[in-house]
């Protein structure tokens, strides 16, 4: 009897976090579906999305441009330094482009956007909740999920791949800046090696598909944390931190899963 009780107690103690996680996941799924269901408001009133595109897309542009330029330059420098030992510095353009388009572009943009815009979205929605603005909206017969959450979600999902494409291009330009004018790699070789190696569907499109999923993940985490933040100053600050931490973990985990999918896909016989 006592052993049985002990076993039940142990299972119960082990089970509690599992049950909590399942409940959390279920609630998140329900919220995700309600956001999708409320998304018709964005089609009826595209102006709501345009406004959020400004706050998520345009205001993230500065950090994306500067980071991409430096990442590209560092890549160019490092790759040149390694490749020149094998006399293969001609392919520095190809290596920089592949690294950016496949991995660094999508992942770094996603991380930057989550800390620049994702946290802001969480804080904004959390504050609206803490100051009863969401409640007021509900009492004015305007559903907050349709008016506040859905436009931010879709603007972000749209902005992330665009910012990633800009990151890729600026990064490649940064690599070129170091390799060609600075280190003396031939301009024509730089581009022709890149063009020969980078495939549109396998590299460019796959990279953008990744960033699209990252966008969905980041923005969903941001609006979910904001909308369900504890309505106090402390609660909002905790939710903002959670957004950044969870986005980073989810982006990196998702990157592994998506990459594994994409690269298994093209080795096999059609």
């Amino acid at each position: 009897m006592t052993t049985l009780e002990r076993v039940v107690g142990l299972v119960g103690r082990l089970g509690a976090p599992v049950v909590d996680a399942a409940v959390g996941l279920g609630a998140a799924t329900r919220f995700f579906l309600s956001v999708l269901a409320a998304s018709t408001s964005c089609l009826r009133r595209p102006r709501l999305v345009v406004r959020e595109l400004y706050f998520i897309g345009v205001l993230s542009l500065a950090i994306i441009l500067v980071s991409a330029l430096f990442v590209g330059m560092v890549l160019g420098l490092q790759m040149y330094d390694t490749l020149v030992r094998f006399g293969s510095e001609d392919i520095v353009g190809m290596v920089v482009a592949l690294a950016l388009v496949r991995e660094l572009g999508p992942v770094l943009s996603a991380l930057l956007i989550s800390s620049r815009a994702g946290s802001a979205v969480t804080a904004e929605i959390g504050l609206m909740k803490a100051t009863e603005q969401l409640s007021a909206m509900e009492m004015m017969a305007v559903p907050p999920v349709a008016r506040v959450v859905a436009p931010r979600f879709w603007a972000g999902v749209l902005a992330v791949p665009l910012l990633t494409a800009i990151f890729d291009v600026v990064g490649i330009f940064g690599g070129w800046l170091v390799a060609v004018p600075l280190l003396g790699v031939d301009d024509g070789t730089f581009w022709s090696q890149m063009r020969a190696a980078v495939d549109f569907r396998l590299d460019v499109v796959n990279g953008l598909i990744k960033s699209l999923w990252f966008g969905v993940a980041i923005l969903f985490i941001a609006v979910h944390q904001g909308f369900h933040a504890e309505p106090t100053a402390e609660g909002v600050s905790r939710a903002t931190t959670r957004t950044v931490v969870r986005s980073a973990l989810v982006v990196l985990g998702l990157d592994f899963v998506l990459t594994a999918f994409m690269f298994r896909g093209f080795e096999g016989m059609g």
Binding site: A165, I166, F200, V204
Partner: peptide, 22 residues
């Protein structure tokens, strides 16, 4: 600004397709 941003993003996509992936 939003128009400029979207145009820049699409231009980047076109550049990736035509110049980088050839």
């Amino acid at each position: 600004w939003v128009g400029l941003f979207v145009a820049a993003g699409i231009a980047a996509l076109v550049f990736l397709a035509l110049e980088v992936a050839d």
